[in-house]
Write a protein that binds this DNA or RNA. Structure first.
Length: 255
DNA sequence: ATGGTAGAAACTCTA
């Protein structure tokens, strides 16, 4: 099973990039974040023509998550159960005997802000839900934009970023809690190049200057991690004309 | 100390 995640930052704007990438990479499943469209304007037909079924949890203007797959999604769940949230940030589904979740963690804006407090509350609720999901689904994969860099090596300038939003200790602790539930950071199961990042700010030529962070992750339950054969970042789409500010992450699991 | 860019939306917010 080849499974990927990509924050596309507007599915409407990025549809051509996505279709090109799907044709070139042929994943079985891809989790999308920041579709920024309502369900009614989701490009279902264009994706179906490319061979993908879709399940979407959208909203007008902001957020929005989707799962695209070669096979039919079952038992689709939208949002974190028992966590009232007006923002569309979670969708989960069964794909065969693998449970897949596409998640878009709140950005948090700045440490100490109202949005930062919401981010930490949200991550707390996510951990509670994923603990239950793990108990129910030994084969669980959680993919998405976590908006948190786990370690110094995941940040181009850790000294400058220390304590800033995306790399503050409370955020890292919240991410570690997910790892401690038994979810492995698939990327770190393998040797990786230095300066491997998934997001580069649009401003100040950050991509050209390699000023990135690794904030998009593939988390695997122990059963899936044991069968994972590769996990890589594809930075190529970030270099295209009018790109998303995030790169896709691809993970292969021998099932 | 601020701004730099992009997207959606609608003259501002979010990232």
């Amino acid at each position: 099973m080849k499974i990927a995640t990509w924050n596309v930052n507007s599915l409407r704007v990025r549809l051509a990039h996505l279709l090109d990438w799907l044709a070139a990479n042929a994943p079985d499943v891809i989790c999308l974040q920041e579709t920024k469209c309502e369900d009614a304007s989701f490009p279902r037909e264009a994706l179906a023509a490319a061979g993908y079924r879709s399940a979407h949890h959208g909203q007008r203007g902001y957020n929005g998550v989707a799962i695209l797959s070669r096979s039919e999604c079952a038992a689709v769940c939208r949002g974190i159960p028992a966590f009232a949230d007006e923002q569309s940030r979670v969708i989960a589904a069964d794909l065969g005997d693998v449970r897949v979740a596409s998640i878009y963690v709140p950005n948090g804006q700045s440490v100490g802000s109202e949005k930062y407090a919401y981010k930490l509350r949200w991550l707390e609720a996510l951990a509670g839900w994923l603990e239950a999901e793990l108990a129910a689904h030994p084969r669980l994969a959680v993919l998405g934009d976590f908006n948190v860099a786990p370690e110094s090596r995941d940040v181009h300038d850790p000294a400058a970023w220390e304590g800033q939003v995306l790399f503050s200790e409370p955020e890292r602790a919240a991410l570690r809690r997910l790892f401690e539930l038994g979810l492995a950071d698939a990327f770190r199961l393998f040797e990786q190049p230095e300066a491997s990042f998934t997001w580069w700010d649009y401003r100040m030529g950050a991509f050209r200057r390699k000023m990135g962070l690794r904030i998009d992750h593939v988390l695997l339950s122990s059963v899936l991690a044991a069968r994972c054969t590769s996990c890589t970042i594809d930075p190529a789409p970030r270099g295209l004309e009018r790109p998303s500010d995030h790169a896709p992450v691809v993970c292969e699991i021998a099932l």
